[in-house]
Write a protein that binds this DNA or RNA. Structure first.
Lengths: 350, 350
DNA sequence: CTGAAAGCGCTAACAG
DNA sequence: CTGTTAGCGCTTTCAG
């Protein structure tokens, strides 16, 4: 009978604490003390243990440990973002990881793809793996399934979007104000027919940007009843199509406010294809890598993703340390970067 | 004496399988069978168990389970990439996650930031958490610390960069060939003074790109002894500086081959600042979002990050399923996308 | 400063 | 089809 694994090196079993203890000639509890840097171990004993650890290439099993440990901490958190492939989300992820690493905490990351089912599934997998805490970007309008989670003592911090119907720590941009800022910028250049292009309006962020836009139009005395708002635009291709249609309409907008990254991309593609990039003003939410080199360079509303991620992580880890904090909604300001495309004036301007 | 947590809802302890069993009026093993979809449970019993699960909001503890389960599988893998904030790495992450999710596997993600110490630290944390397998982008020249890992039966697949001195599954682009392709493209337009700008040469990917560049120069009969190669460029700012210096030299290059994303960005910034974007040819490794809208649009070598990630995940999961596979180096082709900047001819061309 | 015993929540192996 | 017993690797508790 041949071995089932003829080529590979024979699998040597992973070392256990017991084996380390035997090799070092001490009890398992002493090994545990050394590994976890607990006090009350003589330097000599500790050194013998470390030698055994190296000799056996031993790595503690945190999972097994947390089974018994007070509080059952796994030193692992769950992070749910729109997509691990999205630059904005990546920056948040980065900021969270930086803080986590400092504390020896690992991060389970997952993408929810704007799908409430995926979101719920991802959270379930996090819970099965006994994460200590959760940082979530949510796509759900029904967060009731999370109520029990917080009750079980697992802290949750929401990032990017405020949760619906749940009183919990939240860190977001100042979406409505930022949208108003951009809108005011365009109105100041003389625009009155401004189109807002926005993603799925069930995403709170999208809705807030729309609201900020409309509010600012209202403040400027521009009738919001006939305001041009296009929602439910998913990605660059639909945006590209839509802008094409819009611009060939009898009364085309003189400015476009794109409320999201990919929508900006699609908008620009059509403008360039039509050679109209110098005629229609554009402001985009979220910056893009080469935006400053285009002609005209793109005026954007830049969110501080790093600050958002850092604030969320800070909040979560402080709760995990046991700090008693009131539930808070932290708002990170976004800023407008004027580069050219947002300063184009409408054709009929004096 | 006041409660230490006066405002919050009292923390209800997490439900255990035993509690579910008691509530459903069955043994724990039956609950285990139902939860894990094992056979040999009557529909009626299963339904009672599910009711109890819902009532108690029970989530299995996979950690505890894997302690006893044959093979000790945790259904979690570790993914190490250059940075979770890097678009190329994000695309790999995405592809890995997609496959993992299908199999109910979670992903612990970490950034190594081109730092061997961070890399080793991250792997250690993965191991402590008993991941079933590892997908690694490595920055280390000494991978000896991983030998024991594979011996313990934990499969490793390397992505983006081949490991030094370790015979293991690897998925990379065809770096040398792709660099040669880009170089040939420039030579075909009449360029002979081509500068290659490349990241840290200790990164195998960077070295391979340099080698492909030099090899192609050699094939074209261009003396490689005087070839212009600038290594150890970390990010956009140093690249920006360097290009400025280069272009003010007595015999400036007529074409620039940027071997990395951020270097391309810096290169372009200088070219635009000097108004020379129509005079100096540029080819960049890795695509950028707005590259097609610039004037001239940027010619790039595009790596298929999704395919790389997918191939790596496929390999890992097949090994985890127990398939016996020979160690393999899978090479994913990269392609050249000609857009304009790479087709600029040198000033002295006939 | 050190170690022995108990048990965390679960699943393997077996008995019914 | 179902339940009981043992024990995974670790940390807690408590006795030296």
């Amino acid at each position: 009978m041949t071995s089932p694994n003829p080529t590979a090196t024979p699998v040597r079993q992973r070392a256990t604490m017991k084996q380390v203890a035997r090799l070092a000639g001490v009890g398992t509890k002493t090994v545990s003390r050394v590994i976890n840097q607990e006090p009350n171990v003589s330097a000599a004993t500790a050194e013998r243990v470390w030698e055994a650890v190296r000799a056996l290439d031993y790595h503690v099993d945190m999972q097994a440990g947390s089974l018994r440990r007070a509080g059952g901490r796994t030193r692992t958190i769950g992070l749910l973002i729109s997509s691990v492939d999205n630059p904005f989300a990546g920056a948040i992820h980065r900021a969270v990881e930086t803080q986590a690493r400092r504390l020896g905490v690992s991060v389970l990351a997952a993408s929810m793809d704007e799908d409430p089912d995926r979101e719920a599934q991802a959270v379930k997998e996090f819970l099965r793996r006994r994460v200590d805490g959760l940082i979530l970007t949510t796509a759900s309008s029904d967060l009731s399934y999370l109520a029990s989670v917080t009750q079980h003592g697992i802290p949750i911090v929401f990032v990017d979007r405020a949760p619906v119907g749940l009183h919990a720590d939240t860190v977001t941009s100042d979406n409505s104000a930022a949208a108003a800022l951009g809108t005011r910028h365009l109105i100041g250049r003389g625009h009155r027919r401004i189109a807002m292009l926005v993603d799925n309006l069930s995403i709170s962020t999208a809705a807030e940007r729309r609201d900020g836009f409309l509010a600012e139009l209202g403040r400027a005395g521009i009738p919001t009843g006939e305001a041009i708002v296009h929602g439910d635009i998913h990605g660059a291709d639909p945006a590209e199509q839509l802008v094409r249609t819009m611009l060939s309409s009898p009364e085309p907008p003189t400015a476009i406010f794109s409320a999201q990254n990919l929508i900006t991309l699609g908008t620009l593609r059509t403008l360039y294809a039509l050679g109209m990039q110098h005629q229609v003003a554009v402001i985009g939410f979220d910056d893009l890598p080469l935006a400053d080199l285009l002609d005209p360079a793109i005026t954007v509303i830049q969110q501080d993703a790093s600050a958002i991620g850092a604030a969320a992580a800070d909040r979560l880890f402080r709760r995990l340390e046991g700090e008693q904090l009131p539930v808070e909604h932290i708002i990170i300001p976004a800023r407008l970067i004027a580069r050219g495309s947002g300063e184009i004036t409408p054709p009929d301007a004096a």
